[in-house]
Amino acid sequence: MKILVAEDEPNIAKVYKISFEERGHEVIVTHNGVECLEEYSRHLEQTSGHNAAPFDVVLLDYRMPKKDGMEVAREILALVPKQRIIFVSAYVLETLQDSVKTLSRVVEMMQKPFEIDDLVSLVEDTSIWKGLEQLNVNVGELRKMNATHDQLLGLYEGLRAIQKGRGIAG
């Protein structure tokens, strides 16, 4: 997966980078909202396809210097409405209320403090991988293909629909 991180605490950003890279993900770390938007725009220009997300996921700290996470999310979603964004925040209620008001949607989020493995599981959406395993998909080979989150979700939903269409229990 290709992951963009916006985290103003250098030690936390380093933990994110190390943890995701150990799992084979490409990670770009930014330290404030403006830097995050610049990096996002730069990668968006390199992405082929209209409205294609340049990152599988963007991890945003809610409170950051220069531009807060909600402002960054609003600008990113204006460019690519389907971009997956996860907020990492100690301010859960405030983040959720602000997301509904500013973005007109409830966002994915992880409440600080948390175990890094929990964040990795959320980003990797382990429920999709487990579901694919249950459908007898060779997950090891699939991981080598470095599919995006949207591709994996589409595959999983398609296979589930086929399974249900044939009356196969599951």
Score class of each variant (00 low, 15 high):
residue 66 K to V: 12
residue 76 I to N: 07
residue 83 Q to N: 00
residue 13 A to E: 03
residue 126 T to I: 14
residue 55 F to G: 02
residue 122 L to K: 15
residue 132 L to N: 11
residue 5 V to W: 02
residue 170 G to L: 06
residue 111 Q to M: 06
residue 140 G to A: 07
residue 89 S to A: 06
residue 56 D to R: 02
residue 129 W to S: 15
residue 156 Y to P: 02
residue 117 D to E: 14
residue 49 G to Q: 00
residue 152 L to C: 09
residue 65 P to L: 00
residue 157 E to K: 15
residue 88 V to P: 05
residue 100 V to E: 14
residue 166 R to V: 04
residue 29 V to F: 03
residue 51 N to H: 08
residue 97 Q to W: 07
residue 67 K to E: 09
residue 23 R to L: 12
residue 9 E to R: 06
residue 23 R to Q: 15
residue 75 E to Q: 08
residue 133 E to I: 03
residue 169 A to N: 05
residue 31 H to F: 10
residue 146 N to Y: 10
residue 157 E to V: 12
residue 169 A to G: 02
residue 63 R to C: 11
residue 20 F to Y: 08
residue 116 I to Q: 03
residue 54 P to V: 01
residue 144 K to W: 06
residue 106 V to N: 13
residue 94 E to Q: 08
residue 163 Q to G: 06
residue 121 S to K: 14
residue 113 P to F: 05
residue 53 A to M: 00
residue 92 V to W: 03
residue 134 Q to E: 14
residue 118 D to F: 08
residue 100 V to M: 13
residue 54 P to G: 05
residue 58 V to M: 03
residue 164 K to V: 05
residue 44 L to V: 02
residue 79 L to K: 10
residue 145 M to R: 13
residue 106 V to R: 09
residue 169 A to V: 13
residue 130 K to P: 05
residue 59 L to Y: 07
residue 156 Y to I: 04
residue 17 K to S: 15
residue 84 R to G: 08
residue 52 A to K: 08
residue 108 E to M: 03
residue 66 K to E: 15
residue 1 M to K: 08
residue 1 M to Q: 10
residue 118 D to L: 11
residue 18 I to G: 04
residue 142 L to N: 06
residue 75 E to D: 13
